[in-house]
């Protein structure tokens, strides 16, 4: 039924072609390779995955910034076609984007007032509303006193303040969805929590949905209800956050959770159990399950030959792994 889901992705694929000598095809980087998920209005999800697993590519596909290779995106009841200019404009107006790198995200020669007016101008918000919208957004991200900050340029702000400005810009059009790509990975731990709480509060008070991307699993549980674990272009596990932390099913999720230390002197006394090897190439991913070469539980003759489908061993907890067939 339309209206029940805000965003639905079906079997999304985003492959980047590699060129040799500028024209010969040298294969594809399968950055997103068959991903499906649903997002309800005002729901927040986190996508966790290692560097290069395709998180940013997934977001860019949803926003129409990367060309889709296959699959379908439905946003707010309508199929989204990134080739249509009007679809793109509609997506941009309803989705706020917080980029991976706050330092590169802000134009250095604009002051804060200019930076925040821009999306209002582009989306033809009536002029007389601008001042109030800008002030509201700045108060919301606590760039206060507003009058002190309005004439400042990005380089005059600390990393945390810059990131708040990026968030203010993302929410100024009151989007239905915010996508935040590693919004805090460049910041100090002491500032990270502040920014995450800020995002979370804005999401709740405006009933927005949020897709939050990170490689830092330890910050997830304070923030969102559901977590997706991404590995080599695929989502291998979907679960409620608490459930995932307590009872990870996919062997990759298990080693990931195990590898993350809490600060404790006991850590210095023992060695970690870590699977050998490195994340696989996305050009020639391993056959069968992509994690099988590193997996301690791989079943010979199955995991190395057949791709596992999605199983749902517990309600709202699904996993792409043959151990749960």
């Amino acid at each position: 039924m339309p209206g029940e889901l805000l965003l639905s992705a079906k079997d999304l694929k985003t492959w980047f072609e590699l060129k040799r000598w500028g024209f010969l095809s040298a294969g594809f980087v399968r950055a997103v390779d068959g991903i499906s998920f649903d997002l309800k209005p005002s729901e927040s999800i986190t996508i966790v995955g290692e560097s290069g697993s395709g998180k940013t590519s997934l977001l860019r596909t949803i926003l129409g910034l990367a060309q889709i290779t296959g699959g379908e995106i439905t946003f707010d009841g309508k199929i989204f076609d990134a080739r249509e200019v009007k679809d793109l404009a509609w997506m941009r107006a309803h989705v706020g984007f917080v980029q991976q790198d706050p330092y590169g995200a802000l134009p250095p020669f604009m002051d804060i007032r200019k930076i925040l007016s821009e999306p209002l101008l582009i989306n033809k918000v009536p002029k007389e509303e601008h001042e109030k919208r800008i002030r509201d957004a700045m108060e919301e991200v606590r760039l206060i006193p507003v009058d002190d900050f309005l004439p400042k340029y990005p380089h005059m702000l600390s990393g945390g303040q810059q990131q708040r400005l990026v968030i203010a810009r993302a929410i100024i059009l009151r989007p239905k969805l915010i996508v935040a790509d590693e919004p805090v990975s460049m910041l100090d731990a002491s500032v990270r929590v502040e920014i995450l709480e800020l995002l979370s509060n804005i999401q709740k008070s405006h009933n927005m949905s949020i897709i939050y991307i990170t490689h830092d699993l330890s910050s997830v549980r304070y923030f969102s209800e559901r977590v997706f674990i991404m590995y080599a272009g695929k989502i291998v596990e979907k679960a409620n956050t608490r459930e995932l932390v307590q009872n990870p099913l996919h062997p990759y999720a298990q080693v990931l959770l195990n590898a993350i230390p809490d600060p404790d002197h006991e850590n210095a006394k023992k060695f970690k159990e870590v699977p050998p090897g490195e994340p696989p190439s996305l050009v020639n991913p391993p056959s069968g399950c992509r994690f099988h070469p590193r997996c301690p539980h791989a079943i010979e003759g199955l995991c190395n030959t057949q791709e596992p489908p999605e199983f749902e061993p517990a309600p709202h907890h699904s996993v792409e792994c043959w151990l749960y067939k």
Binding site: S190, S219, Y222, V245, I260
Partner: peptide
């Protein structure tokens, strides 16, 4: 103390805190 309190811990229920100001 504040710095340690800002570290999110995955395996416990503790909520991280942040240091106000700069």
């Amino acid at each position: 103390q504040k710095l340690m309190a800002s570290v999110p811990a995955l395996h416990t229920e503790k909520r991280p805190d942040f240091i106000p100001g700069q």
